[in-house]
Amino acid sequence: MTPVTRDPGTATTPRADGATWRSITPGPAELDPRGYARRRGLVERGLAILAPVVLIGLWQLLASGGTLESNYFPAPTTIAASWGELIESGVYQESVVASVQRIVIGYLAGSLSAVVLGLLIGSVRLLRVALEPTIAALYTVPKLAILPLLLLIFGLGETSKILLVALTCFFVVLINTIDAVSGVSPRYGDVGRSSGASRWATLRHITLPAALPQTITGMRIASGLAVIVIVGAEFVAADAGLGFLVWNSWNLGVPEHMYVGIVSISVIGVIASMLLRGLEWLLTPWNR
């Protein structure tokens, strides 16, 4: 009797009495688990790289074939060439440095002060009930909407743009930190109290680590928002920066330069997000 193969590893053998034997045996994933996982990993990583390459290749084909309007969608090779020109003239470096500087300073100032205040507000009940409604109200104000106000108060210089980034990050991180701290299971607090831990020891050994994962999530969201608002601010109130590069290229009618700016901005966002994932990996070894 030849077994009727359904899929690798299982076979159904009919028997004389009408019943069948189903045998279940190891498949390739079970026979060589390591090799299987390695091949699978290679295929998956390959696909992750291949997909964007194919998309860009397609774009290149359509653009050079004339299917895409080159005034709106310049070919990737054209964009790359103008990227080179921008680097050669130094405009590109100047733009990147200007934007990154605003993002980093504003982000650090806003996020770090929010973590400290969030820990304090989250762990002191009276502070929390007093401030939470106000913070929630301020959080919902779109921060770009207060840019004109900041410009009015601080002028066109760096301060207004850095403050805009700082404010944006501050409220996101603050809300997440307060939420994280008040969400810490009271069981852990009980252990601290029954061990006679001081307020400081409780904060350092219980509240902070317990709230850390969600706090870092807030910091990661804030890093994305920082990139978004700085571009918005640079559109209207800057003479340097990647946002300015994009906006100015529209004014000058140089679409290639717009793409250089757009791609660079998204790369900065990706790098920021990766850095924060790295930070999370470093600071929360128990979650690895």
């Binding site: 299971s185 069981r187 009980d190 252990v191 050994h205 680590p209 317990a210 850390l212 128990w286």
Partner: peptide
């Protein structure tokens, strides 16, 4: 305590 009282971060 009954459960979940060991600090996972330590």
């Amino acid at each position: 305590f009954q459960d979940y009282s060991v600090f996972p971060w330590k």
